[in-house]
Design a protein around this nucleic acid. Structure first.
Lengths: 337, 337
DNA sequence: AAAAACAATGTAACCGGTTACAATAACCAC
DNA sequence: GTGGTTATTGTAACCGGTTACATTGTTTTT
């Protein structure tokens, strides 16, 4: 069986290729006997229709494009699982590209997606949109795709015309900060990224909300701003722990950040919750082997992926409904304060 | 610009579509003036050729299929990074499917890959090949693909006709065990999966090799066989620690397994290396926050991905060279014994 | 029994590219 | 000036499907 196209099947069955095509796409329209005969031949020859030919002819595709900044961050790993569960259910195929948070890679991926004429796009914009032209260019590429788009995790004004799923981090961080304040802490610090990215700004805003609510003045000294990596956070935490005026409680705004903080704590022979309290955003990997007393804001990343997938499916079905922005709430898990 | 095909470009430029096609594929064959004019029109109209049409016509595809059992395991995350680096370089597109170690999902993915007429397959076979017919069926699907295939990580006889990349776990585990023996341990245990899978068997063999070499009898009591999950390993480790005859050193054959072991250790208020020694396969996540004294076999998963990618590229170029099996060596990192 | 409706199938155009081959024009050698 | 190259472009078939429309035979309606 060197190859096997719809023509070969048709020839062997002594019918036209239209009939063969119908067996696959509208079985009820072909005589049961003919149908069975054709199906049998298909099985025998191990016929598999070509996606390219089908897509070309139908002017659609079953591929959905996904862009995430870090596949190997468990947060995005879970998002991918969520997406997969929906995409599989609808017999779609996912192409996932890792952007390393680089706008450059986003562009490359978007061009590739256009070549593939993707049926939809699930997009976590790279955070390094330093220049506005960059964002404009990417917006152009996305419009070019001319397909349903769902923005994930990072709410940027440029993309406000598209559906989106986000976590209400402002609220969560505010609540977390309040919990620390209510526990009696007056010197509450925050580990966050510098204010370039929207995530960092949102989270910082939540932190400020809490302080204002409790009439505590915002002290820049207590803000340790890095870049959401463990090494940077570790370094900042060391500085903090060695400073003369060290907060008694902190909020850490990212799982990597939490890990850097914990590492510094350990190296300074300090005990979590006893010497300094902490609530982190997202659980950290290997939580269990560190001990169970890490407090964190539990964000259901998988749910974000599912929601994004569903929004996309819905948008494919109803292209002209108003734009939807879903904000997912998170739960705060307190083990020990 | 409602849509934009090669015909639209040709019309606007007043040339035949063959010429437009040549601008893209063999630019030297078209007059520089014409070429520039056409390129300009393409830019203006934001023309992007359709991958489906191109693939259909060329009878090839730029998609490579990848199957891994757990995307969210950092080991496979790194493999994917390695693959990406190669695949990107050759302007190919990767479709990655997560099998959850279920043969059923492998089959589904392979069928989808055939529809896509993938240019190559990088395959980590699901471990749950309980029945031989299952393996035969999958082999059939793979042969059907009729494309270069590289087997990753799991060396199964069924796939011996294909290129493969593997870690020499048998050697590594043997060496690790020897290190423990040479450090004076006579009661060395092993945390491994039960013997269904090839990985578990290979590792167990390495363990036995070391014992035999040092004339230590193989004691089944010291073999804690589970399923490479943290929970199971934790449970086994608890049993071990509470048993009357507990090994003084263990080898843990998987990162999740190591984590379960460490958790149990911690809950029993035992100190790693002081109370019981351990060498694990693969580093564990969050190593740094736990402390630096976890010994492990460092496997360069990224290298496995790269090698697999390169083998595939090579096989595409030279289809009839003899099958290659690459065995990657690992380094053992000892922090504290 | 003629007209109308329906079921099953075939015909042929189309999707958007690629490419072998043909055609034309310009150039070169002798 | 004739024959032979070479450079540039066009023509048309093809890749493997889908689908509107036409055709044929059968059944139903009246």
């Amino acid at each position: 069986m060197p190859k096997c196209t719809i023509n070969d099947i048709a020839k062997e069955a002594g019918v036209s290729k239209a009939t063969v095509s119908r067996v696959l796409n509208k079985p009820s329209s072909v005589d049961p006997n003919t149908r069975e005969r054709i199906l049998e031949i298909m099985r025998k020859r191990r016929y598999t229709p070509s996606a390219s030919a089908r897509n070309l002819s139908r002017q659609t595709s079953t591929i959905v494009g996904v862009i995430v900044p870090e596949v190997d961050n468990p947060f995005f790993g879970e998002i991918l699982r969520g997406i997969t569960s929906i995409v599989d259910k609808h017999n779609l195929t996912m192409i996932c590209v890792n952007s390393d948070d680089k706008a450059e890679k986003d562009k490359k991926a978007l061009k590739m997606f256009k070549e593939q004429r993707v049926a939809g796009l699930l997009y976590t914009p790279a955070i390094d949109y330093s220049k506005p032209e960059e964002a404009k260019e990417i917006l152009g590429l996305i419009q070019d795709l001319d397909t349903p788009v769902v923005i994930m995790d990072r709410k940027l004004d440029v993309f406000e015309r598209y559906d989106g799923v986000f976590f209400d981090d402002r609220k969560s961080i505010c609540e977390a900060t309040e919990i620390l304040i209510n526990a009696g802490h007056t010197k509450v610090g925050i580990f966050n990224a510098t204010m370039e990215g929207i995530l960092a700004r949102t989270r910082q805003a939540g932190f400020k909300d809490a302080l204002k609510k409790h009439n505590i003045s915002y002290n820049k000294e207590y803000c340790y701003l890095g870049n959401y990596t463990m090494t940077k956070s570790y370094q900042l935490a060391c500085e903090m722990l060695e400073s003369e005026d060290c907060p008694t409680a902190v909020v850490t705004c990212n799982n990597r950040t939490s890990m850097g903080f914990l590492k510094a704590l350990r190296e300074h022979n300090l005990k979590l919750s006893e010497d300094i309290s902490c609530i982190g955003l997202d659980r950290i990997e290997a939580l269990d082997i560190v001990g169970n007393d890490f407090n964190f804001i539990r964000r259901e990343a998988k749910l974000m992926g599912q929601t994004a997938g569903e929004l996309m499916i819905h948008r494919i079905a109803f292209p002209s409904e108003p734009v939807q922005n879903v904000f997912l709430e998170s739960e705060i898990v307190i083990r020990k304060l």
